[in-house]
Design a protein around this nucleic acid. Structure first.
Lengths: 153, 153
DNA sequence: CATGCTTTGGTAAATTATCCCAATATCCGC
DNA sequence: GCGGATATTGGGATAATTTACCAAAGCATG
């Protein structure tokens, strides 16, 4: 995979913040004309550097006032157990992020819910019904100080 | 603010996954013609329900192989201390997420870096130089099991 | 200095977004 | 149920944007 030059990185930085820039605007900002700029963007898409284009939705506008981080310890950590857990997690829309962590081999989940009641429903009807979970610990976010999808380029 | 009906929610669900759908495609999927579909999208934008359109970039393609969760405890938790911390955090591109947490009033940060060396540089030249930090605890992510920006609608 | 390869820039065609207006549907009081 | 007011829809015309093509310019290599 060929490396990203300075212009590619500038394109990525700009599109990570606003993918609705027209090719003309983007080209102006990176100092190219439309044609080569367009070709670079297409190439970044084909190479998978740009993976998708999405709209971001305001969490409060949807009434999702609760953000929770959940630490989970499994009873066993065989590959099969990990895979089974990952498959279950992936199906649930409330779970926005899930990471396999170092240390005591826990998972860390970020979950959103409308309120504490619906979070409780999530716990009771989904998470705690999974087999093989040794412990669950919830930490609630009081506020989102920073949230960005833009990776440093 | 008027409520979101079923079609609005369908629009949001679709655009959260792919904002490059044409109005024609989007209209077909939600069962409207182009005009009212377009008007609904514009309204969702104006009301701030749709906040932005962005491109997502592949973390590995950028060589960012390290994801770290950092728990931070401040020496004092007066509003001024919290604000000062928030301002500093917000400037750093390595910090993708930062939450003020309940409990012992800690912050939880998600930070990305190219490797352990550059993570160490981030710690030494930025985070640990902040005043008023009582303790820092890093937990490393072995793998990203799930990562989504799409809120449940 | 010439050759081959890569990247660029401009133009034209195709696609898509956007706006306007008439028609339809929905809601409310009676 | 009925009539009127309001909100929503659908189609078509126009403007904006994307996309493909080709010639020209830059760049490294021998």
């Amino acid at each position: 995979m060929p490396d990203l030059d300075a212009i590619d990185r500038k394109i990525l930085a700009l599109l990570q913040n606003d993918s609705r820039l027209t090719m003309q605007e983007l080209a102006d900002k990176v100092g190219l004309s439309v044609s080569p700029c367009h070709r670079r963007v297409k190439l970044l898409e084909e190479r998978g550097v740009i993976s998708r284009y999405i709209a971001t939705v305001d969490q409060k506008a949807l009434g999702l006032h609760v953000s929770v981080f959940i630490s989970i310890k499994l009873a066993r950590q065989k590959e099969e157990d990990l895979n089974r857990f990952a498959r279950a997690i992936s199906k649930w829309d409330e779970v926005l992020e899930c990471y396999l962590m170092t240390g005591n081999r826990d998972y860390l989940l970020r979950v959103v819910a409308a309120d504490l009641a619906s979070y409780e429903t999530f716990l009771k009807t989904k998470l705690t019904r999974l087999d093989g979970i040794a412990s669950i610990e919830s930490s609630f976010a009081l506020s989102q100080v920073k949230y960005s999808i833009a990776l440093p380029v």
